[in-house]
Amino acid sequence: MTEVEISFDVSRIDFDKTSDVIKASYWGEGRTDDIHRRAFANSLCLGAYIDGEQVGFARAITDYACFAYVADVIVWPERRGLGIGKKLIQALIDHPELASVTGFSLRTSDAHSLYEQFGFVTSTDGMYMRLSRQPAAQG
């Protein structure tokens, strides 16, 4: 199997490629580079690398104490099927600064089986609530 390196060093993240791959995803449609700059700056980000080349990305929005929301987990299309997504998720949930986090959540329409391997379950408890709205116009 190809050796995949996971790094939380944000200086290694290829911002342009990462932003472009996310914008091409079903959930990233309509996002801009500016939105990604702000989102990444306010998240715990990590990249996946093969031979020094970035091949994946994920982030967690977190308070580093109780809660973390997993977001933008993506593997470059030409590198899918190598277990990179699993390595990204494992690295996030094992991060030492998230050791006290008891509530991880995420949203997906197509990767349930990936997350179920780590203990994520579809919420049907009647407690999870969501507010969806259009973003405010930027001036």
Rank of each mutant, 00 (worst) to 15 (best):
A99G: 10
Y64K: 14
S132C: 10
V73I: 08
D110L: 05
V101T: 13
S132G: 10
E97S: 14
T108V: 06
A111L: 15
S109V: 05
Q117Y: 14
T108H: 00
F104E: 02
R130A: 14
T122N: 02
S132F: 04
S100P: 01
F104K: 06
R79F: 11
D94G: 10
L88E: 00
F67G: 04
T122F: 02
L82V: 04
G126T: 06
A65E: 15
R130F: 04
I89K: 02
Q117F: 08
S109G: 12
S132L: 12
S113A: 15
L92S: 04
S132W: 04
L98T: 02
L106A: 01
Q117H: 10
G119Y: 10
D94P: 05
A91L: 12
D110Q: 15
G81V: 09
R80V: 07
S100W: 03
G85C: 09
Y115D: 01
V70E: 00
L92K: 03
F118M: 14
R79Y: 15
K86P: 01
G126D: 00
S105Q: 15
P77D: 10
D72A: 04
I74D: 00
R133A: 14
A68Y: 05
R107S: 11
T122E: 09
V70F: 03
K86E: 09
T62C: 02
Y115K: 07
R130L: 06
R107Y: 13
D110M: 05
L106E: 03
F67A: 06
S123P: 02
R107K: 13
C66R: 03
L98P: 09
K86D: 13
A91P: 12
S123N: 11
A71G: 13
L88P: 02
D110R: 12
Y115V: 03
I93V: 15
Y64M: 08
A60C: 10
T122K: 11
M129T: 11
M129H: 13
R107P: 00
I89E: 00
L131Y: 13
A68R: 05
L131K: 08
E78W: 15
S100Y: 04
D94H: 07
G85S: 12
W76E: 09
R107N: 09
D72I: 00
G83Q: 08
S109Q: 13
V121K: 14
A68D: 02
E116K: 11
V75P: 00
K86I: 07
Q90R: 14
L114A: 05
A99C: 07
G83V: 02
F120P: 07
A71E: 15
H112I: 06
H112F: 11
P96E: 13
S100F: 01
G119I: 03
T102E: 13
I89A: 01
S109T: 05
D110C: 01
A99I: 10
Q90F: 01
Y64R: 08
K87D: 14
L92P: 03
Y69M: 11
G119K: 11
F120T: 11
R80Y: 02
K87C: 13
H95C: 14
V101F: 08
A65G: 14
G83R: 03
Q117L: 10
A99N: 14
P77V: 06
G126Y: 08
Y64G: 09
D63S: 15
A68G: 05
L88I: 15
L88C: 12
A111Y: 05
I93G: 03
P77M: 08
L82C: 08
E116N: 06
F118V: 11
E78L: 12
H95S: 11
A111F: 07
L88K: 01
